[in-house]
Computed example of a mutant assay.
Amino acid sequence: MTGPTHLLVSTTSAIYLGYSSVTELLVVGIASLICDIDRKNSLLGRLIPVLPSFIEGLLGKRTLTHSIPFLLLLAMVVQTINSNWIPLLLIGFISHVILDLFTGSVALLYPYSKKFSIRLLVPPVFIETAVLIGLGVFYAFNWLDLYSRIQL
């Protein structure tokens, strides 16, 4: 999945779960992108060019940064910043990992080397396209409700 798709799915999920302030949506958005810090061509990876190359070269793609131990580490960091952001972290991170399970394999239990995936009989690009079409239809029928929930 691409960064914009992760952002759309995570922030839409957050809004429907009752999180609607700009700060809350920003935290969810960052949480949905942090997993891909292991890729230099990701949205966050382009902002910090050295770190992704180091992580991917040392550990590989979709390993540590897509794992439950990494989520626990992030939760401890977020807890020290603002404990109210833990649910926001979970929404962003978990939505990212679920989407990636459909388009590849993820080392959920890193450092255990087994990777998990949910295989459908279509190429990953079709899955991302289907998600975006689904979101488009969802927005078409729910845009007014979405807009009314956001607190600017």
Rank of each mutant, 00 (worst) to 15 (best):
L17S: 12
K115Y: 05
A75D: 06
Q79K: 14
G136M: 13
F54L: 15
W85H: 07
V97L: 12
L7H: 01
F138N: 09
T5K: 13
Y139D: 06
S67N: 03
T11V: 10
I37T: 07
F138D: 04
T129E: 01
R119I: 11
Y19S: 02
L132P: 00
I127N: 00
V137R: 05
Q79T: 11
G3M: 04
Y147H: 11
I150S: 04
G18L: 08
N142V: 10
D36K: 02
W85Q: 02
I37V: 15
A140C: 11
I30L: 15
G18C: 09
D100R: 04
V106E: 08
S13R: 07
S13Q: 12
N41F: 12
L59N: 05
I34Q: 03
G57N: 10
A75T: 14
E128K: 04
T63D: 07
V22P: 01
V78G: 07
L72Y: 07
L51R: 05
S42L: 06
P52F: 09
I150C: 04
L44A: 02
T129P: 03
P123T: 07
T129Y: 14
L7T: 00
N84R: 15
N82D: 15
A14G: 03
L132D: 08
L7D: 01
V50T: 15
Y110N: 05
L132V: 14
W85I: 06
L132Y: 04
D145I: 10
S148Y: 10
S21L: 08
L135K: 11
L99M: 14
L144Q: 12
Y139K: 07
D100C: 10
L89G: 04
K40G: 12
P87W: 04
I94L: 14
A140T: 13
Y19K: 11
L26D: 05
I48M: 12
L47S: 08
V137Y: 11
V9Y: 02
W143G: 08
L120M: 12
L72G: 10
G92T: 06
L120A: 12
I86R: 10
Y16E: 08
S20D: 11
A31D: 00
S117C: 12
G57H: 11
T5P: 09
L89R: 00
S42Y: 05
Y139W: 13
